[in-house]
């Protein structure tokens, strides 16, 4: 176990280093710098661009800039944001990640709370009206672009029913009560994943339900619930568990579409705007954060396999 952890840690560091290197190179290969926008859009003097470039060391050779970045990174310093003058990337990330993490977690819970039961019922009642309905809805949800779905939900819940304000995301995460306003955005965010998960659960269950041991369990006279939930579902969960890591990472790293429609200031919108603004510090910081979330989520999933399937051992 200890050896496993050490080798995983080494793998993780290597992965993060490669992500940092690739992002850094790509970011500097793309034309345009952080201050061009001010010149072209705001008529700011090009002298200012030159001074800023020198001040932030952006005129140094790339290897030197990268080494400097890594040097600061290992000390936990992610640098300063260009777009939001004077603020540290660490503070900005903390500020932006919190609502996305909360919303993503809510969404994750909704995805599992709906996706798995619907998938199980679809499989158990295969080729009935229930199955067709849930599959039809699943296909619809997977096919409708999230901005369309988000606007429809906004219309229904904020404009017609008036259960929520139009800007549901406003103040989200500031208080326990504000979390209630996150339900609709969380639904919109999780809709495609819910559809995917229910389909995956359905097909995994169907496969398992045809297995001999399920037939054996049935013939032994075990109750339906015990057969489906303890014997069938538990084995069907293994492929689903593999999906969990990337799914969680995908949900908590935010969506610019959901965030901008519901007015929720999360990391997705911040990431996109940092790319547009060539805010190098924020681009690197956000990418590193995302990479870490994905690596950690996958690691936790690996640790969880033995809990579902005792045949799997970590070594």
């Amino acid at each position: 176990m200890a050896r496993y952890l050490i080798s995983r840690a080494a793998e993780t560091l290597l992965t993060l280093f490669l992500v940092a290197l690739a992002t850094f190179l790509l970011m500097h290969t793309v034309p345009g710098g952080p201050f061009d926008r001010l010149v072209v859009e705001q008529g700011v003097s090009p002298d200012f661009v030159q001074r800023q470039t020198a001040y932030y060391g952006l005129d140094d050779p790339l290897p030197i800039q990268f080494a400097r970045y890594l040097g600061h990174l290992v000390q936990g310093d992610l640098g300063l944001s260009f777009q939001r003058q004077g603020l540290s990337v660490t503070d900005l990330l903390a500020d932006k990640f919190k609502p996305s993490l909360l919303l993503g977690t809510m969404s994750f819970a909704i995805v599992f709370a709906i996706g798995i039961p619907v998938g199980v019922i679809s499989a158990v009642r295969r080729n009935t009206a229930v199955d067709y309905a849930s599959r039809g809805l699943g296909t619809t949800l997977a096919a409708v672009p999230s901005f369309v779905l988000a606007f429809i939900l906004l219309l229904v819940f904020a404009v017609w029913l008036e259960w929520f304000p139009v800007r549901m995301g406003k103040g989200f995460g500031d208080s326990l009560a504000s979390l209630g306003n996150g339900i609709v955005p969380a639904l919109a965010l999780g809709a495609p994943a819910t559809a995917l998960l229910s389909r995956l659960t359905r097909s995994a269950m169907l496969e398992v339900l045809d297995q001999d041991y399920v037939r054996t369990a049935r013939s032994k006279g075990l109750g339906t619930g015990t057969v489906y939930l303890r014997h069938a579902l538990r084995n069907a969960l293994i492929p689903i568990l593999t999906l969990t890591g990337p799914l969680f990472a995908g949900l908590v790293t935010g969506s610019i579409i959901i965030e901008s429609i519901f007015g929720l200031p999360g990391i997705g919108a911040a990431y996109i705007s940092s790319v547009t603004a060539r805010d190098y510090g924020m681009i690197m910081g956000t990418t590193m954060l995302f990479a870490t979330v994905i690596v950690v989520a996958n690691f936790l999933v690996d640790l969880a396999y033995p809990l579902v399937d005792p045949r799997i051992r970590i070594s």
Binding site: V30, G32, D36, V40, T276
Partner: peptide, 23 residues
């Protein structure tokens, strides 16, 4: 071009005809 790349091209004179404004 993507916004940032377009600004860079405009700023660097890498265009034939472009449109720009002044406020």
């Amino acid at each position: 071009l993507e916004r940032g790349a377009a600004f860079s091209a405009l700023f660097g004179g890498e265009f034939q005809v472009s449109s720009a404004g002044w406020f």
